[in-house]
Structures are given as structure tokens and as C-alpha cells.
């Protein structure tokens, strides 16, 4: 996993609630056996019509918006446990998702793939959507070390929460497998006790 560095970027607003994993990446695209290329089909059925033509109104097709942050409505990532949803977002180029609420499994999957979910209050979220409506090029800073999100145009500074263990993993670019493999001896002892 890549180390998570401080970001200075713009944001893409997706003002829809309950965006589920079937919208993020429809099941028919899950046939691949590697992790790459899912970004092309991110939000496929909102992004392209049945003739594979881009749907103009959809925000990813709007040239006004770009950047490494996706700002989404409440309860983002509900539905299935498919990690392909996180892969599609990172493969597309997102590093951060901001919402007022994330589904559990999605949040875990995101963190395991270096995608930072930032949870803000519903008021702050509404505020960010307003800013982006007025100024699509508004700039954002994400400082994971300091756990701060900065919306520069309105000088809004938000502290966000993240589990300490996960933060260390993201900042150093290492993951749970490395840690667990280092614990094998302890795990073996546990098994012996359990089967005794």
C-alpha cells in the first residue's frame, strides 16, 4: 500500500444519499481476477447510458469538477462487502471520500486500500456541497497526521476522527496482513489452548 501523504486537491460532489456498492460498481463488472481497471466502470450506470454514451448530467462527466476527493451524501457504501467498490474509487483516482455517514464494511475496505473515509456532521456536509455548487474549483487540504480537513475558500477547518491503529497503517503504508503474519506464534498457542 502507498503511504498516505498530505493532499492539496479539489473535490467532486455526489449529492445522493444511500449510494450502495451496486451503484459504485455494478455486479456484472466483478468478473476480473485482478484489482486493476475497475475505475473505468465506477458508477457505470449513472455515468453511461445503455449505448455506452456518457450521461452529461452526471458529475463525473462534468469537466468543471475534478480532484482526489469524492463528497457523497449520507450512508455511503451500503450494500455488499465487495471490496471492488473501494478499488473502483481508488483506481479512478480518489484518495478521500467525505460523507456524513459510511457503511461499516465499506469503511474497513476503504482503509485497507489507502482510501481515507472522512466522516463529518450533516451540517458540515451540506456546507461543503454549497461551497462546491458556488465554486467547483474550491480547494481542499487533507492532513491525516493532524487529522484536519481544510476547505480553503471558506476557511473552514474540521477535525476528523480515525482509529489510531489505522492511522499509523495509512501513514506508513503497511497493512493488517504484515501485522498478523508477525503474530503467528501467538495464534498457534491460542489454537493449542482452544483444542486442548
Amino acid at each position: 500500500m502507498e503511504k498516505f501523504e498530505k493532499l492539496n486537491t479539489q473535490a467532486v460532489p455526489l449529492n445522493i444519499e444511500n449510494v450502495d456498492t451496486d451503484q459504485i460498481i455494478p455486479a456484472r463488472f466483478l468478473k476480473a481476477t485482478d484489482r486493476n481497471g475497475f475505475g473505468d466502470n465506477l458508477f457505470r450506470d449513472w455515468r453511461y447510458d445503455s449505448n455506452n454514451q456518457p450521461i452529461e448530467e452526471f458529475v463525473l462527466n462534468n469537466p468543471d469538477f475534478s480532484g482526489k476527493i469524492l463528497v457523497a451524501g449520507n450512508n455511503f457504501g451500503c450494500g455488499s462487502s465487495r471490496e471492488h467498490a473501494a478499488w473502483a474509487l481508488t483506481d479512478y483516482g480518489f484518495k478521500v471520500v467525505i460523507s456524513s455517514f459510511f457503511a461499516d464494511i465499506f469503511k474497513g475496505n476503504a482503509l485497507n486500500n489507502g482510501l481515507l473515509p472522512i466522516q463529518v456532521s450533516p451540517e458540515v456536509l451540506a456546507n461543503i456541497f454549497e461551497v462546491l455548487e458556488e465554486n467547483p474549483k474550491a480547494s481542499f487540504v487533507v492532513d491525516l497526521k493532524a487529522q484536519k480537513l481544510l476547505v480553503e475558500n471558506i476557511e473552514l477547518e474540521i477535525d476528523f476522527e480515525i482509529n489510531n491503529y489505522k492511522k499509523t497503517c495509512l501513514l506508513n503504508g503497511y497493512d493488517d496482513i504484515d501485522y498478523l503474519v508477525s503474530q503467528k506464534e501467538k495464534i498457534g498457542q491460542f489454537e493449542n489452548l482452544k483444542n486442548a
Partner: peptide, 16 residues
């Protein structure tokens, strides 16, 4: 669980 976690369980029969 997600696929990263599937790999964790393969590697250690445990999850964090």
C-alpha cells in the same frame, strides 16, 4: 469481509 480481509484470514486464520 472484504477481499483484503480474505487475504488476512488466509495468511493467519485471524482478523483485526
Amino acid at each position: 469481509i472484504g477481499t483484503s480481509q480474505v487475504a488476512q484470514v488466509f495468511a493467519s486464520q485471524c482478523l483485526l
